[in-house]
Amino acid sequence: MIDQPFYVLLGPDGAGKSSVMEHIAGRLPDWRALSTDDGLVGPEHTLVTQLRHHVVKDLLPKLGTDYSPEFLAGMLQTAVVYLRDQIERHDPAVPLLVDSYYYKILAKCRLAGVQANPMYTWWRSFPQPRAVVYIDVSPETAWRRSDHGARLNPLEYFGERPEWLGFESYQKALGKLMLEEIRDLPVTVVDEQPDLARAADAVVEVLTA
């Protein structure tokens, strides 16, 4: 295993990680932001973003009917391996911030019904970060940011449709599983901020301390 220093930005759905990552890319030009989000994936890796969109558009609506939870986990593993590859190829002299790494994907796979899988052992053997910055947000705030469920996908709530109780229950379970996965790592929790700009400021303060 390659010893590659990096940091992970983690948080529940609606915490604003994508926006914070974009802010940080502008605020800390000496850092590299690594994610599977469209704006942070290079043109040489368009397959990564295509697979991500196909999972949301084509797989999730048919999860449990045409596709099994294990098939979903196999598809999501492509994102995990992509992030691992990029970490191991990264110049160690350049500070690196990784969006969620495998922690959130593993938690979501478990919540989808794949409680145990040999892939998890493999993922846990990947390089570990120096520290994790966990952006916290209340389910109530995340629900408002999702336009009261209108912009959620089926991996963000329990139940057949996005409703408040299913969303709240899912997000609490998701947070518990993610924190359980990183319990042996140095973790700094950034409490909920009034807006995403202040959340980015708080994360920058942690990273540059």
Rank of each mutant, 00 (worst) to 15 (best):
G166K: 09
D91T: 15
V204D: 05
D30Y: 05
S19D: 00
W122H: 13
Y120I: 03
N117M: 12
K104V: 00
A197N: 09
Q115K: 11
P12S: 05
A131C: 13
A15H: 03
L174W: 03
W122E: 13
V48L: 10
L72P: 08
W143D: 00
W164I: 07
A116M: 13
L47D: 12
I182P: 01
V81T: 14
D85M: 15
P43L: 12
V55W: 01
G175R: 10
H54Y: 09
T141E: 10
L152P: 03
H45F: 15
I182M: 03
Y134F: 13
D58T: 09
W143L: 11
V114Q: 02
V48A: 08
Q86F: 10
V80A: 05
A142E: 00
Q128P: 02
Q171I: 06
E181F: 15
E156A: 03
K172D: 04
D58Q: 07
L60H: 06
D37T: 13
V132F: 04
E181P: 10
T46Y: 02
G11A: 09
D3R: 15
R145K: 09
P95D: 02
K176G: 10
V204K: 10
V189H: 01
F6Y: 08
Q171D: 03
L106R: 09
A107Q: 04
L174R: 03
A93V: 15
S169H: 12
L72Q: 07
R52M: 07
T46C: 07
T65H: 09
Q128E: 08
V189N: 03
I2E: 00
I2D: 00
P12N: 11
D201W: 06
K108A: 00
R130N: 13
P92V: 15
A33I: 13
V8T: 06
L96G: 06
V133K: 06
R32C: 14
I182A: 00
Y7C: 11
L177R: 12
M178Y: 04
K62F: 14
Y120S: 02
R32Q: 15
R151C: 13
D13G: 14
Y82M: 11
A33Q: 14
P92I: 14
S35T: 05
G159T: 12
A197Q: 08
G175I: 08
D66T: 12
A33S: 12
L196R: 02
V137E: 01
G26N: 10
Q115M: 07
L196D: 00
L34W: 02
K104H: 03
D30N: 14
T49S: 12
Q115Y: 01
W143R: 08
L51F: 09
G64R: 08
Y102Q: 12
T208R: 06
Q4M: 12
D195T: 06
E180F: 12
V206C: 07
N117D: 14
H54T: 11
E168H: 09
A209W: 04
R27S: 12
E156L: 03
D201I: 11
R130Q: 14
D37V: 10
P194E: 04
M1L: 11
E88F: 07
W122D: 14
